[in-house]
Amino acid sequence: MKPRSPKSPKDLFKALLSKKRFPRAVLVLCEDYIRRDRIAASVAKKVASECGGAAPSIIRIKAEELTAEKLRSFAEESMTLSLFSSARVYLIERIDNLKAMYHPSLLSLFSSPPSDAVFVCLGTKLPKNTKLYKFFAEQNLSLEIPHLEGYSLQRWIAKECSRHGLAISRSCLTEFSSLVQRAAEADGVPPADMAASFVSKLALYCEDGKVSKDDLLAIVPELIVPNEFELLDAIANGDEFLSEKIISALFHVGVNPFLLLSLIAKSIEKEMVIKYLSEKGYTPGEIRKSLRMTQWQFSKNEARAKCRSIKYIVESMKDILKADMDLKGRSLSDENIFSLLSSRLQQKTL
């Protein structure tokens, strides 16, 4: 019979840490590096406590680099540790890249008698129909950490600020969370990793330990005001005057032109995916979940997608590529390049 599982990944991890001995192997699936790494550190700390406080040896290896020879070596090492040897924690990173041919060998290793070796498999996702996933799921050894957005992201940021000794007001936290989501989407980085990076900078910048909106502006000025998403709306609405006004304001505060171009490109790319999946019969909820977008982001992109044709999207991407080449070639000023791009995109909406 399958063991009864705690309600959440957090509860499950606490239950595993409370055991007299940590399990031989555990699976950690999480989109961001920061939370995966902290879970691995907690496992190492637990193993150390089991060995009288002596820090275990940490061995990191990428799953795609595993070979039959290395797996045999792991098996021998994990079973021959003596009382005088340091315990070992093997961190198998990017487990989703492990070749299927090595799944049986790895499962055999995990099923071996307990020793002073612990294996932590780290990745972002793993198909549920694989033997590897089923092995961990059936024994309640799979920690599937949820995506952060909205309130959950705000709460995580607040804890991260507290971790660095920073105090942040509710209004500032809301602004910070919005900033993180926009920056994460523009850079293609998980929100938690982006937030952790910003908080570490704020910890160095804020001398009094209190985060203000001015502090946020000083850390990432191009992402606060004015709002780049207003530019996307102005272009979609064919409002050339407002588009020019926003572009001028953005470059006045020192916007990163490549970041702005990336935002425009990714927005149009998402519109194409939304349009395609909608035509295939997927519901808005299913599409939003697959794209990992907040409701606000999805609503904006969905509204624009309904007004687009595939031809428009293809031609728009060509214009974006030209703008990218112009930025690199510096044939015009950055502001003029975006003015021309905005004009071309609006002409296609007419």
Rank of each mutant, 00 (worst) to 15 (best):
S290T: 02
N256G: 05
S278T: 14
N129E: 15
A117K: 00
P3G: 15
K201Q: 11
R4F: 11
P257F: 07
P146A: 09
Y133A: 06
G150N: 12
L122H: 00
G123P: 01
A87Y: 05
V28E: 10
S262M: 02
G123T: 01
K7N: 14
S111H: 10
P226H: 15
R308Y: 12
T174Q: 12
F84T: 04
I274Y: 07
F251C: 13
L277Y: 02
V314Q: 12
R330W: 04
H147M: 13
L153Q: 00
L179S: 01
A249E: 15
P113T: 12
G209I: 11
S197T: 11
L277P: 00
A75C: 05
S316G: 10
S333F: 06
R308W: 00
E185C: 04
S331T: 15
R36W: 08
F176M: 10
K306S: 12
P114A: 14
S73R: 05
T67K: 02
L91W: 07
K70A: 09
L141R: 06
D32P: 02
S42T: 09
K300G: 00
C172S: 15
T130D: 07
T283E: 11
R88S: 07
S86A: 13
P56K: 01
A75G: 04
L179H: 06
A137G: 04
A41Y: 05
V273F: 08
F251L: 13
L29A: 09
I61Y: 05
S152Y: 05
P257T: 01
C121T: 03
I264T: 10
L66M: 10
A203G: 11
Q297M: 11
Y312G: 00
F136R: 01
L132M: 15
K300L: 10
V89Y: 02
K306N: 09
Y133P: 08
G150A: 10
L66A: 07
I287G: 02
T283L: 08
P3Y: 14
L148H: 01
E149Y: 03
M1D: 08
S142H: 04
P113H: 06
P113I: 07
E138S: 07
I59Y: 14
K210E: 13
R94S: 13
C172T: 15
F258D: 09
E69Y: 09
Q154V: 02
S316M: 10
R330P: 02
S267C: 13
K280M: 14
L98N: 02
K318S: 11
F135N: 05
V314N: 08
N129C: 11
L242Q: 07
A40E: 06
E222W: 15
S339W: 06
A236I: 04
C307K: 14
L332R: 10
R38I: 11
I310D: 07
E93K: 06
